[in-house]
Design a protein around this nucleic acid. Structure first.
Lengths: 344, 344
DNA sequence: TTGTAAGCGTTATCAA
DNA sequence: TTGATAACGCTTACAA
C-alpha cells in the first residue's frame, strides 16, 4: 500500500528508471526541461522517498559513522559527541552511538555489528582491551580514530588531551602558590588506561622538578566508591595534604562530597584543582579552579580526521593529536602565606 | 582484495549461496552436520562478515532507530538517551543520534534522511514546529514516540513528565513551609513548548489552590541570557520573592549565579527549588532541594513502546505516558518562622 | 537526451 | 537436505 519506488515514478513520468536516477542525483546536464518537470511532478504526486539502503548496497558507502564510547554519561563524552555530530551534520553523515560501559565484550560486538552495517568509519573511546580487533581494522585500513584514550601498540590516529601537561599545569600552579604537600586522587591505575597513567606520571614528574616530595600516601588511586573512605584515612593521619589534584570530574565530585561531609574548608584547609571543567565550577563556593579540555575542538578534529581517512583511503601515517589543556583560575586555590612552613 | 561475500564462502564450501544463507540464519534443521562444518570452516578461513545492508534491502528492516533531540547537551537528553541505547542493545538494535538545536529545519531534514535510511522507528524530542511532518508519519503508521515534549493535535505516543504535578509539588512544598511570595523562573513561554506551559500552569493553579497570590512580576519568563538582569530588577524592587521555583536545570543555574553574585543567602534570604535533579545538588551549599524526573524509566519506556509499535504494526491507540516527579528534600528550602508575615 | 540491462549481497520460493 | 532463480531498489555503463 505504501512503498513507492523509483520504478513507480518512472512509469508515471513516462521515462526510465535511469532517467529518474539521473534526476535524483542532480545530473541535469543532458536532461530536457520537459522531462525534468515531469519527473518532479511524478515524485511530488506519489510522495516518493528514495531508499538509501538500496543506494548504499550499490555504492558501498553509507554516509554513516559509528561512535563507540565507554561512558555515555561522562561530560567529556557528551561534549565530544556533540562536536562530532555537528561535523557530520555538515557533511550529510549520520552517527550511530554505542555505549560499552567499559566492557570489552560489548565493544567487540559493537565493532563487528557496525562494520556489518557498513559504516564508513569508526570513532572509538576505547576500553583498550580489544587489541587484536583494533589491529585488524588498522591493517585493513578501515577508517578509525581513537579519542580520549589511545591503545599502545596500535598504529591508529588518536585525539587526546596532553595529559602530562595537564597534570604539570596543576602541580606548577599549586607549587607556585606555596603548596608543598600535594595529593592526587584518581580511579584505579590500570595500565591499559593511558590517560590515567599519564596524568599520574605528569603529577609525579612535575613534583620532582619542583623539588617537592612525592609521598606515596598522597596518591589515592582507588575505585570511585571507596575514595571517600580513603580520603578519610588520609585526613585522619597526622599530616594531611594541603592541596588535592583531582584527575577528572568523577574524582572531583568525591572530593567535594568529602569536604562537605567533613567540614573541611576550601581553599583555607585544602586547596583543590581538577582536570575537567565541570558546569558548576563557577557557582560553587568557592568557585573551582580547573583545567579544561578543549572538548569541542577534539570532537571536531576526530570527525575531520575520520573524513579525511574516508575520502582518501591511502596509507596515511597514524598521528596522535595532543590537545592543550587550559587552566581556568578561580578561587579554590589561593596563595599560601610564606610564613607557613607546611605544618597545620 | 577485501570484500568477501556469501558467494565466496559458498564456492569454497562447495555449496550454494542459499545454503550458506540458511546456515547464517541458523536454520540448521535440514542441514547435514557435514555441510555445516564445511561452511563454518569456509567462513572462518575467509574471514567472512555478512553485509547487513544487503539483508536490509531484502528484509525491509534495518534494526536501527533514530533518536532526534533538540539539545544533546541537556542532562535529561543524555540520561534518556542512555536508557534508550541500553534497551536497544538488548534487542540488537542500533541508535542513530541527531541533534537539532531546536531548529525545525534541521529536524525536518533529519526526519527525511532517517526515513530514507529506512530506520525502523523514530524517537523524537520535538521542536514542535513540524506538525505536518509528524502528522504524515502518524498517518502512515510509522513507529514514532515523542519524548519530553508533545505536540498538540498529533496523535502519537508520548513519554512525558507529569509537569503540572511537578510544579504542584514544588509550590505545595514551599507553601507548607510558610512561603507566601513565591516566584518562578522559566525560559520564554512559547505555546508550542508544552512542558513549559504546563509547569507554569501548574505553578499558578497550585498557588491559587493554596490561597496564595499569583503576582505577575514574580513570573520571570525570558531568554536564559537575560534572566540575570530580570532577577536583578525583581530584587531591586521593594518586595522580592521569598522563594524561587526554577522550571529546569538551565534556569536553576542562572539563579545560582545570581545569588552568588549578589550575596543572597540560600535558604535564609531566598528559598530555592527546581525541576531536574542536577548532579551537584548534594555538594552545593546548601544542598539543593529538587524535583527529579525518572529519566531512565522514561527512556526505557520510550524504547519499549517503540519496539511494540515496530513489531505489531497494528492501529494501536496513541497513549501519553505521564511519569511522576519525585521531590528530593535537601536544604535549599527551610521552614519559615510563623511570626513572619512575609515582610522583609 | 533517454533507455536497457547488469549488477550490489542478501533472502525466499520452489524444485530437485 | 540442497540448489536455481528471482527479487529487493537503486546506480551506471553502454546503447540508441
Amino acid at each position: 500500500m505504501k512503498k513507492v519506488t523509483m520504478a513507480d515514478v518512472a512509469k508515471l513520468a513516462n521515462v526510465s528508471k535511469s532517467t529518474v536516477s539521473q534526476y535524483l542525483n542532480k545530473r541535469y546536464e543532458y536532461m530536457s526541461e520537459e522531462t525534468r518537470k515531469r519527473i518532479a511532478r511524478a515524485i511530488e504526486e506519489l510522495g516518493y522517498q528514495p531508499n538509501i539502503i538500496a543506494r548504499s548496497l550499490k555504492q558501498k558507502t553509507t554516509a554513516t559513522i559509528g561512535v563507540i564510547v565507554f561512558n555515555i554519561l561522562h561530560m567529556l563524552t557528551i561534549q565530544v559527541l556533540h562536536a562530532i555530530e555537528e561535523a557530520c551534520q555538515e557533511r550529510g553523515f549520520h552517527v550511530i552511538v554505542c555505549n560499552t560501559d567499559d566492557d570489552p565484550e560489548k565493544e567487540k560486538k559493537y565493532i563487528e555489528m557496525l562494520r556489518a552495517k557498513q559504516v564508513d568509519g569508526l570513532i572509538i573511546f576505547p576500553t583498550g582491551k580489544n587489541a587484536e580487533i583494533y589491529q585488524k581494522m588498522v591493517e585493513e585500513r578501515f577508517p578509525l580514530i581513537f579519542v580520549d584514550r589511545m591503545v599502545p601498540g596500535i598504529k591508529a590516529d588518536a585525539v587526546l588531551l596532553d595529559n602530562k601537561k595537564a597534570a604539570a599545569l596543576a602541580v606548577e600552579y599549586l607549587a607556585e602558590r606555596g603548596y608543598q604537600r600535594i595529593g592526587v586522587v584518581a580511579p584505579p591505575l590500570v595500565s591499559h588506561v593511558i590517560p590515567r597513567m599519564e596524568r599520574i606520571e605528569g603529577f609525579r614528574q612535575t613534583l620532582t622538578e619542583k623539588g617537592l616530595p612525592v609521598i606515596a600516601d598522597y596518591v589515592v588511586a582507588t575505585e570511585i566508591s571507596s575514595i571517600q573512605s580513603e580520603l578519610a584515612k588520609l585526613f585522619a593521619s597526622g599530616r594531611p595534604p594541603q592541596a588535592l589534584f583531582a584527575i577528572n570530574d568523577l574524582t572531583l565530585m568525591e572530593i567535594l562530597h568529602f569536604v562537605k561531609n567533613n567540614g573541611i574548608h576550601v581553599p583555607d584547609d585544602l586547596a583543590l584543582i581538577s582536570i575537567d571543567d565541570v558546569p558548576f565550577a563557577d557557582i560553587y563556593t568557592p568557585t573551582l579552579t580547573t583545567i579544561a579540555q578543549p572538548t569541542f575542538a577534539m570532537g571536531k578534529k576526530a570527525a575531520e580526521r575520520l573524513f579525511m581517512q574516508i575520502t582518501k583511503k591511502q596509507k596515511h601515517k597514524p598521528q596522535i593529536f595532543r590537545f592543550p589543556p587550559t587552566l581556568i583560575e578561580r578561587k579554590s586555590v589561593r596563595q599560601r602565606g610564606n610564613h607557613n612552613d607546611g605544618r597545620q
